[in-house]
Design a protein around this nucleic acid. Structure first.
Length: 305
DNA sequence: GGCCAGGGGATTA
DNA sequence: TAATCCCATGGC
């Protein structure tokens, strides 16, 4: 019998959290749950919403409560306390963040209403760095395929779960020893040389130098400078790494979709204006706002047709 | 600072 | 079938 952990959570919904483009290794199962691997641990996350009126309709604020039970299967109490609790960012009060952001304007208010179950996963730095190098100028379905191929070919088998094999994310050492051509099986295109280049830099400088950027006393600007020095990492990818793995929550990644949001919904014209507007409006919660808005614009595009 | 190639696949025309 | 687009970056 699989070991399970069940906890009561608020401001969480698996679809919002796993489909908002922050992570690429969570797969939706036929029962609506998600199976993923992080830190070499395979886990399944299911969610049973509370059936109270407030949760089904509107919360006390201008958003649903997204309250219910999060059930993690194939894990232990120790792993939950030592890893998943932090990974799922369960100690953060998202209600307070949403209330503050919702006061800013009607656009972000509606975005929070649509994707109020997003939690920013605290992902591993090395994996996040490489995942977002792969993400550049790319579609999410293909990003997922590239990463899966990378893990299957260069990672280690982490185990079999519900009839499927899972592989860990390849280490810097393994990829540093490769030539870009060796990664051809992953269909990374021109990004293969970026991965190998960055892997060699990380191997040289030490993984701990990268990990140290996640410390609270490391300023966002310092982390940004460090992360952008890697091969194939510019401002967009760096901001994603800062936001999704280093706890720099003022980061506001500006990609094609976010430029669309800022132009169509906020009337900002240049990227410079967009950055300044975001900083001015969302401040230290910029990263949370970015995720709500990113999810919102993509939902709208889908419903259009 | 602006322009364009980089791979490859998915989507659109 | 052809053109366009994609959670961009590096190099000129």
């Amino acid at each position: 019998m699989e070991q399970q952990i069940s906890i009561q959570v608020e401001d969480f919904h698996p679809v919002h959290t796993f489909e908002c483009g922050q992570a690429f290794r969570w797969e939706r199962q036929s029962d609506g749950s998600y199976t993923g691997i992080a830190g070499g641990k395979i886990v399944n996350a299911a969610f049973i919403p509370d059936e109270d009126l407030e949760n089904l309709q509107e919360g006390s604020g201008s958003y649903k409560a997204y309250r219910g039970r999060l059930i993690l299967s194939n894990t232990s109490k120790e792993d939950f306390e030592g890893f998943w609790k932090t990974y799922f960012d369960l100690d953060r009060d998202y209600g307070a963040i949403k209330r503050e952001l919702a006061q800013k304007d009607p656009v972000i208010r509606e975005a929070i209403r649509q994707g109020g179950g997003i939690r920013l996963l605290q992902q591993e730095k090395w994996e996040t760095l490489l995942s977002f190098i792969i993400s550049q100028n790319n579609h999410i379905p293909r990003i997922k395929k590239c990463i899966e191929a990378l893990c299957e070919n260069f990672g280690e088998k982490a185990g079999t779960y519900r009839g499927r094999d899972y592989y860990s994310f390849p280490s810097p050492q393994v990829l540093a020893a490769m030539e870009p051509e060796d990664l051809a099986v992953c269909r990374l295109g021109y990004r293969a040389k970026y991965l190998v280049g960055t892997a060699r830099q990380v191997e040289q400088e030490g993984l701990s130098a990268l990990e140290a950027m996640g410390d609270d006393n490391v300023a966002p600007q310092e982390a940004f400078s460090y992360v952008t020095h890697f091969c194939g990492v510019g401002p967009k990818v760096a901001n994603c790494v800062l936001l999704f793995s280093m706890g720099k929550y003022d980061s506001f990644p500006l990609d094609v979709w976010m430029k669309r949001v800022m132009e169509q919904l906020y009337g900002q014209k240049s990227p410079k204006e967009m950055k300044e507007f975001a900083e001015r409006t969302f401040g230290r919660f910029g990263g949370f706002a970015q995720q709500y808005l990113f999810y919102y614009i993509r939902e709208m595009e889908q419903k259009d047709c």
